[in-house]
Amino acid sequence: MVDGFIANSLAEALEIRATQDVVPYAGGTDLMVVNRPGLTYLFIGKVPELKRVFVDEQYVHIGAAVTFTEAIHNPDVPTLMKEAISRIAAPAIRNAGTFGGNLGNGSAKADSVLIEFATDAKLRLVSAKGERIIDVDKFYLGRKKLDLAKDELIAEILLPSKGIENYAYTKVGGRNALAISRVSFAGVFASEEGKITNIAAAFGAVADTVLRYKDIEEMLLGKTIAEARELRQDYLQAYSERMVLTRGRVSAEYRKGVCMNLLGDFLTKFGI
């Protein structure tokens, strides 16, 4: 035999990744839809270092090979993330699909990736030579283009461990299960001493990558709720002007309309 490598440790996986032309295979749910002939898979689904979930002072660490079902049952995974990943496809897919795979597939429809954008998550990328930690939005260079070197693997997702308790999340799919997102929205809100400290809004499945406009968010940062309410129309207007959406399974107009509704609802939910 044959064409394929089964890694039992991260070191082993990185060694193979550095020396062979392989495609990392974690859950297989995306790769196997096409299963392009001639590919050599590096099976990393059981690498212990990639299967961990733990919390430190700053972050919830979710291993790239942790499946969605495992995360749903893990008390350390934030509720917002759980809500999103419990809407992915159906149980059998969630039993196999992983966080790393959702990222590595490069799609703007990836439900866990939306949450990573909305929460300013970071990714730990590793290679035999070392590791680097980057912001999730820097990882996406464009449609299906990722900042991942040929010898690198996604090791972990680092979600902030605090400050993402207040959120709004909606997934619009074609039906209630087995549905690819047609529009998805996640908003995270935080305030301290009456002033807004975070008002992140991320839009999935409406463009080549997940969209987030931090400069527009700044309009409301540091403001009180009352001040923000005054700015609500300007803020929404700014989004409306900025969001140039593409069409997919649904039209650009539909995407835009729904995005604006959900953004407005997010503001309303937090009194703005």
Binding site: G4, F5, G28, F43, I93, A96
Partner: peptide, 15 residues
């Protein structure tokens, strides 16, 4: 013990 779609599993993953 876990449900999978066997069409989305490569043999290397069932070792």
């Amino acid at each position: 013990g876990i449900l999978h779609n066997s069409c989305c599993v490569a043999m290397g993953a069932v070792n």
